[in-house]
Write a protein that binds this DNA or RNA. Sequence first.
DNA 1: CAGTGGTCTAGACCACCAT
DNA 2: TGGTGGTCTAGACCACTGG
Lengths: 251, 251
Amino acid sequence: MQEEALIDKNSVIPIYYQLAKLFEKQIRRGELKPGEALPTEMEIASLFGISRMTVRRAISELVAAGMVYTQQGKGTFVARPKLDNIVFELNNFNEEIKKRGLKLQSTILEARIVKADEQLKARLGAELGSSRFLFFRIVIAADGERLAYETKYIIYTKQKPILESELKDPSLSNLVAAHSDCLPVSSQKVLQASVANEEEALILGISPNAPVFLIEQTIYDLEKRPIGWGKSIYRGDRYKLTSYDGWYAND
Amino acid sequence: MQEEALIDKNSVIPIYYQLAKLFEKQIRRGELKPGEALPTEMEIASLFGISRMTVRRAISELVAAGMVYTQQGKGTFVARPKLDNIVFELNNFNEEIKKRGLKLQSTILEARIVKADEQLKARLGAELGSSRFLFFRIVIAADGERLAYETKYIIYTKQKPILESELKDPSLSNLVAAHSDCLPVSSQKVLQASVANEEEALILGISPNAPVFLIEQTIYDLEKRPIGWGKSIYRGDRYKLTSYDGWYAND
DNA sequence: CAGTGGTCTAGACCACCAT
DNA sequence: TGGTGGTCTAGACCACTGG
């Protein structure tokens, strides 16, 4: 069968990968349209002279990419791109800025031990019985311009000095890992649109009531106890989140 | 070996799934700590009296969950949770509201054919040579309260009436699919923090300069030509995005 | 070199779907 | 009932890692 020519069994590139890309191209070119069925796994296997398990591995790649879906007892079908999901993904807001070629600089305005007030106790450490916390105020700037302002509280269990590493990456999870015996395993972030208050405006050099992103983050340990809390204010005129969805290109 | 008792080979639950959950529990309980190595695939296989391929399937589940990582020639190791990614995932902002038990209602304020001005041509259809577009203005409300205001433009190629389905789901991708011959395959969304202008404030019943989310969405066809564009304003006091990261629980 | 994970095979039995 | 995808096996060879 001539189809075999499209797959090089002796290539260093895995067969399942070649096969997945083959179908991906057919779908992307429109030769296989949404709703249409792919050949059965056995057909594909004999068509290319390969094992069914290898075919299944290829198909599972396409499933993971959201390009096809399988139905037991029926077959494998080309999916319709789902475009209504918004998936804003960023490795810490700040990585975005870095990629634009700007130098990012974190400055710790303040770092001290504080006793918990009622509000903080409600959010942190209530279950751990701790009442002392490390408190940080941090400003993030790029090329001399201040972009974000963060306040963070973490449970204080280790007696360690502030390390250089924290100045480079004063992220909440990093601070927790450095200053607490707890292992941070999960994190909740809540993103809101807001406007700058007096203090934030002053620090960021923007006018009060200017639009900002507000992110509240809580970090939890293995038993889901909160061990760190932070609030970040990002200048609305400097940050935006971009999300790509659907059948992206990965070739 | 006593370990076999932990896996029921005759269960309707797949072995690979039982095995994956077994390791997941050990990791979550801290019996396997980040950086530690799992037994080798062959060891696990003989320990439980199962095939190596089944072991690999289980491990691949854990890899997908971000709980372990593999290194060829070395072994499989427990990962350290990564908490610095922000992944705001929502099936269209509005699904969030629905889940809170509120009835969502979309109202089309305006729907008509427009000719493209320069600004619109720059964003849409420049490559398709089309100069006529469908224009929508939509308000989304829940329990009588207006929550979001959307304006959308899509290339006009089909001559179809407005369907009921569009009233239920007037999402950009849905509108494009209904009124255009192009197949929408990818989408870009940009999220910004902003404040309401006069028009938006009036429609949403909030004060001007109140904080809002602003999302601009562009939809592309197979050849990456833009075929739809929309701008959505979400009340900042009613919408927030929540992101969970790390080792979540799925049991 | 021995040991690891990565790929692949040629079968097998099953659950599910349609007819 | 026959055909589909889902699971599983018991091998095989490979590329990579470390001593």
